[in-house]
Structure formats: C-alpha cells, structure tokens
Amino acid sequence: MQRVNMIMAESPGLITICLLGYLLSAECTVFLDHENANKILNRPKRYNSGKLEEFVQGNLERECMEEKCSFEEAREVFENTERTTEFWKQYVDGDQCESNPCLNGGSCKDDINSYECWCPFGFEGKNCELDVTCNIKNGRCEQFCKNSADNKVVCSCTEGYRLAENQKSCEPAVPFPCGRVSVSQTSKLTRAETVFPDVDYVNSTEAETILDNITQSTQSFNDFTRVVGGEDAKPGQFPWQVVLNGKVDAFCGGSIVNEKWIVTAAHCVETGVKITVVAGEHNIEETEHTEQKRNVIRIIPHHNYNAAINKYNHDIALLELDEPLVLNSYVTPICIADKEYTNIFLKFGSGYVSGWGRVFHKGRSALVLQYLRVPLVDRATCLRSTKFTIYNNMFCAGFHEGGRDSCQGDSGGPHVTEVEGTSFLTGIISWGEECAMKGKYGIYTKVSRYVNWIKEKTKLT
C-alpha cells in the first residue's frame, strides 16, 4: 500500500490518463441519441435557420407576430419608411378606419389613436360632414345658397324668414311668412316636400332668348283662358290664391305678392273693366268669414305684352289694390325667389296649380277651390304637342294621358313649387288646347323671366 501511494504521488498524470480511459469505455446513459432527441424537440425550422439574422431580410411573422416588435424591426421587413409607417399605425392600436367614419364618399386613412378623412370636392370637416359648395344638395341650405369668396357655403332665406341657429334652416321672422300653410287642420295635408338634388348652379339658368321682337298675326285659340281631375282644397291650404270678379264672377285667378299687390295673367284683364279681388276665398257660393274683398285701382301688364300681336306672350300683369290686405292664416303671400332659384325650383319637376275653373272641358265651374299636382314636361315634348308657338318664356306641365289639367277660369292662378315646406311661385296658368285632352298640356308663363320686374313694381313704400 505504501508503494502504491508513492507511485500516485510521483505520477499524477498517469492516474488522470487511467481515469479518462475508464470513462470513455463506459456506456453513456444520461444523453439520448440524435434521433430520439429530435422526437422530443420537434420544432419547425425557421426561415433563416442556421444563418445569422443580421444578414437576412426581415420576416413579418418572425419579427412582429411571434413577439412584439419595434418600429426598427418592422422597418427591416418593409425596407421602406412609408410602408412601415402605414403598417405601424394599425399594428400599434388597430384600424381606426374600420367603422368607416368618413361621410359623403370620403376616404379614410388610419393613424395612431386617430384617423384622417380625405374629402371629395365640396366637403370638409373631420368626417367630411361639412358642405362647402352650393353645387351639392344646395349646400344643405333649406332655401338659398351662395358661395363666399373663400368658396364656403353661405345660406340665406327669402323675405319674412331668418336663418336658424344651425345656419342652414329657415324659420319665420314674421307672423305670416310667405308660402307657408298655417291653418292647423290643413298642415297635415301639406304636399310632399321637395329635397334639393345635386345641381350645376353655374349652368342652372337656361341660355334662352326671349323672342321679344317676333311679330306674329293673332292666333285663334280655343278655350285658351284655361282644375280638371283635381281635388277639393281645404280652407287655408292655398292662402296665396285669390279669385278675380268682373263682368262675371271667378273669371280668373291670381296670387298675393304682398298686402297691396296681386300677380295674374295679362290676358285676364281689360282696361276700363272694374275688377274686384277676393282673398281668403274657399267656396265661392258661401260666406265663410275668411274672405277679404278689395278693388283694383291700377293694372300693370308687362311692358312687352301686346294682345294685338299675341294674347299669351309675356302673359303676366300686376294688380294694385285700393287697401292693403290683412295677412292671416287664410290670406298669405306666395314666396318669389330670384331668377336663378325660381328656375331651379321649376326644374324640380312638379308643381301645384289651383283655381275655381271648370271641372271638365266646357263644363261647370268649381264651387270649392280645386288643386292638382302636375309634372313638368320637357321642352321637346311640349313643342311636338301643339302647332302653336311655345315661346321661351312659357313652359308645359300636365299629363300625356289627359284627364287632369287646369281649365277655363283658372287662368292667372299660381303654379307653385314647394321647397322644404315653403311654396314659391314658378308659373302662372296661361293657356292650353281644350282641357285635359290626351297628348295636350297646360301652358304656363315662366315666372323666372319676370321676377325682377315683379319685385321692382310691387315694392311697398
């Protein structure tokens, strides 16, 4: 034993070699072989497995989906700052455009905790909710729209109204504003409101030439003092309507412009014939205590009207009353817009006519005020429907199939267009061939041609 100890002390290297040989010859039971080890760690190889990531292109799944990435790591994937920024906006807080917040056709661009709407022409605001041009839906104005110097929408209202708090709607500024039905039992019968379409306001006024200088022999019209197929109006439903009495009662109609003036057809009036105007009328054979009678003290036909040349060209006249009318729910003026808007309103496509005229061709006159909704007829169809001249200051309205029309005794009465609950004068009943005849239409004086003249002559002093 002493000898062994001496050998170990003198030859430590020998001992180490012996131990190493023993270990190498022993069977290893701690580690699995290569094949079995792979069965336990069965993990798919990654895209760049075996390579240094710093030297390969980034992978979106590896960089940002398996674990949260930084902007720089995302930049490695896209290799483009702009594309990385677009991805980053949604990656950080989701897609803010998912709810489609942009209105009126706006395009949404996502941002971090926010979004941006790219608005089409005519709109602005956070969600493109603000109209900035009158060309689109009248700028959301209830009545009139004008573009300011910086191309912003400025709404306005006709006389007797003021802008509401929203700067879009119009509200009454006087007790009985024009064009409004205020009798409670008839307010439910107000005709369907007309909503502004998209309009090209630059070209809204037709490029028409008034044929002022045409000389033409007097034409022989049949029954051209021209509501057939209409309905009984309720008291106060058309408070701007008046009836004219002269040699015979209810020979023509008219509309209240203001307390002192009536507008009617020029062919209705004769110099030297006494005319009485009755406002607030409903049943011409009954006294309903809503009527107001006034005498006409002055007749002003349009300066281009000449019955000797043509009885229905420039067929418009103004009547001055001896005493002002007292405005109330049964006696209310009709609204008159400017030339541009009167023309736009007419193009809405349908209007209402009213009167006490004959209820059928050569038949009896109506006792109760009649009204009828009539569609506008395109000019080409209008011209083809008659052998008589249709001037540019006239328009056609009615039904091709016949059966409904204005008729004798309705002449001078109103053709009105309702705009968001307020009625505007767009025409004056003038003439036609018979009444409600198939293929024939009622012919009306186009008020847009005469609004400046009306307003100039009827100013209240």
Rank of each mutant, 00 (worst) to 15 (best):
E35P: 11
S220Q: 11
E433W: 05
Q219S: 03
C396M: 03
S99M: 14
E320I: 01
H314M: 01
K146Y: 10
L60S: 15
Y330T: 02
D410W: 15
C335H: 02
E54A: 08
G398A: 09
R298M: 03
I7L: 05
E434Y: 07
H282W: 11
T16H: 09
P12F: 09
H289R: 05
W240C: 00
Y161E: 00
L189A: 09
P333V: 00
I214S: 08
E285S: 13
H303E: 13
W88V: 14
G21I: 11
C157N: 00
I297P: 01
A233P: 09
G403E: 11
A397L: 01
C28K: 00
G160W: 02
P120Q: 13
N104M: 08
R449D: 15
F399D: 12
Y91P: 06
G21F: 14
G398H: 04
C102P: 01
N113A: 05
A397H: 02
C170S: 01
W88E: 15
C145A: 03
R62S: 10
V248Y: 09
T218D: 09
S182A: 11
A233C: 05
C141F: 00
L23P: 01
D405G: 13
F395I: 02
I316H: 00
M6C: 07
L19A: 03
L376N: 07
Q370E: 10
G179C: 00
Q185H: 08
L327M: 14
E27Q: 12
R62K: 09
D111P: 05
C178Q: 01
W118H: 07
E323Q: 14
N213M: 08
Y444Q: 01
K311F: 05
I256S: 00
V331A: 09
S350L: 13
T458V: 04
P324E: 11
P414R: 02
L52C: 15
V269W: 04
E129A: 12
K168I: 14
G355T: 08
S411P: 10
Y371S: 13
I309W: 06
R449A: 15
V92Q: 12
A265V: 03
D322Q: 08
E116D: 10
D405R: 15
C382D: 02
L20F: 09
E66P: 14
Q408R: 08
S187R: 08
K247Y: 02
S430C: 06
L244D: 00
V419I: 14
E76G: 15
G442V: 15
I428S: 00
A266P: 00
R62E: 09
I136Q: 13
S350C: 12
K311R: 12
T290C: 07
I390N: 15
V277N: 00
V154K: 11
L383F: 13
V273R: 08
I284P: 07
F87R: 15
S184Y: 09
N100T: 09
K45Y: 03
A308W: 04
I262A: 02
V368S: 05
C69T: 08
N100G: 04
K293F: 11
E288Y: 07
N393I: 02
L383G: 14
S217C: 11
T186N: 06
S423W: 12
I309Q: 11
L163Q: 02
N343A: 10
T342K: 01
R180E: 02
V353T: 14
I344T: 06
T381D: 15
R384T: 15
R364W: 07
C396G: 02
E270T: 08
K274I: 08
G229S: 12
F399T: 07
W356A: 07
Y161F: 07
R46N: 07
A366D: 14
S25G: 04
V359N: 14
H267Q: 06
E54G: 11
A164E: 05
C407K: 04
S350H: 11
N127I: 11
K446Q: 13
G409Q: 14
E418Q: 15
E10R: 02
V331F: 01
G402C: 12
P239I: 00
C97R: 03
D338Y: 03
C97Y: 02
E323V: 14
T332D: 01
M6H: 06
E98P: 15
V331I: 10
N80Q: 12
R43L: 08
P197I: 04
H303C: 04
R162Q: 07
R379C: 15
N36R: 05
T81D: 11
G442R: 15
E116S: 14
A307S: 12
T225G: 07
K339Q: 14
G94E: 10
G349W: 08
E285W: 11
E456W: 03
C97E: 02
G229K: 10
F395D: 00
L211R: 04
L130V: 12
I262H: 00
T186W: 07
V326E: 13
S448N: 05
L41F: 11
S411F: 15
C178W: 00
